[in-house]
């Protein structure tokens, strides 16, 4: 599959950082080691974690194109809070309180989707990005494919990474850590979560798209979970938010 790649050779894609600075820094270090030259972010920079401003600052300074996630939206807008459970709502309200004006302005500037290098970056299902629907089932994946024109779409939201392809009407779940991009094929990539993985692997999740090789590789990195937990415990009464990081749940 040939895509217009500009000058980039390796693209790193992150999502669902959720204010976890320790995890974000570890992923960015791994990207540097893998000689990633462009980075995109599929949203949910804040919420749950203890370092929303620091995470935003890092993305801002490195000019990482980022789309809006539902937790980012909830910090800006009360309407979005309606759909949140108690824990997520408390986290969003805390984040709202500590967010600097600069951070808030940056979040407000985020688009719903970014189209670059012939691929689409979106937080939730591309069927209607502002509805924040999950892509958890094959039926939802099929509907997502219908909504995209690009042969490749990166998303997050569910915190569970996957590679799904559509070829000649057939959906296929690639159960490998590397997916080779194919001709006549559409690809849906959930990059997983940097700051709060929920696939029972506590390592921070992201992907690296090698444009020359035409491959996308799942990138799992260990980070200082204990420190991220300690910081969450200091700001939140929800012990689960800290505990789940160690379990990857």
């Amino acid at each position: 599959m040939k895509l217009d790649n500009g000058n980039a050779r390796r693209v790193g894609v992150i999502s669902d950082i959720h204010g976890n600075l320790e995890a974000l820094e570890a992923v960015l270090t791994s990207f540097a080691e893998a000689r990633v030259d462009r980075i995109f972010c599929c949203g949910d920079v804040v919420g749950y974690g203890a370092s929303p401003n620091e995470c935003i600052e890092l993305l801002r300074r490195r000019e990482i194109p980022t789309v809006l996630g539902n937790h980012d939206a909830a910090v800006l807008n009360d309407d979005e809070l309606v759909f949140f459970n108690e824990m997520a709502r408390d986290a969003a309200l805390w984040t709202r309180g500590v967010l600097t004006e600069e951070s808030r302005r940056w979040l407000s500037s985020l688009p719903m989707t970014i189209s670059r290098y012939g691929s689409l970056f979106v937080h939730a299902s591309p069927t209607d990005p502002a509805e924040w629907n999950y892509v958890l089932t094959y039926g939802e994946a099929r509907r997502a494919f219908k909504a995209i024109e690009e042969p490749l779409c990166f998303l997050g939201h569910s915190h569970q990474p996957f590679f799904i392809t559509l070829r000649f009407g057939e959906i296929d779940h690639i159960r490998e850590d590397v997916m080779t991009l194919g001709e006549n094929t559409s690809h849906l990539v959930n990059v997983g979560s940097v700051g709060q993985p929920r696939d029972r692997d506590p390592r921070a999740s992201s992907v690296i798209w090698d444009l020359a090789q035409g491959t996308i590789t799942l990138n799992r990195v260990e980070y200082d979970v204990a420190r991220a937990q300690q910081k969450i415990r200091m700001i939140s009464g929800h012990a689960t938010l800290a505990e789940r990081l160690a379990r990857g749940e």
């Binding site: 108690e86 824990m87 012990a239």
Partner: peptide, 20 residues
């Protein structure tokens, strides 16, 4: 019994909250 069962459509559905 804190009402978490009236599942919201966003996060509660995949929150694996062992604490509950």
């Amino acid at each position: 019994g804190n009402g978490n069962s009236d599942a919201d459509s966003t996060d509660a559905e995949i929150d694996h909250d062992a604490g509950e």
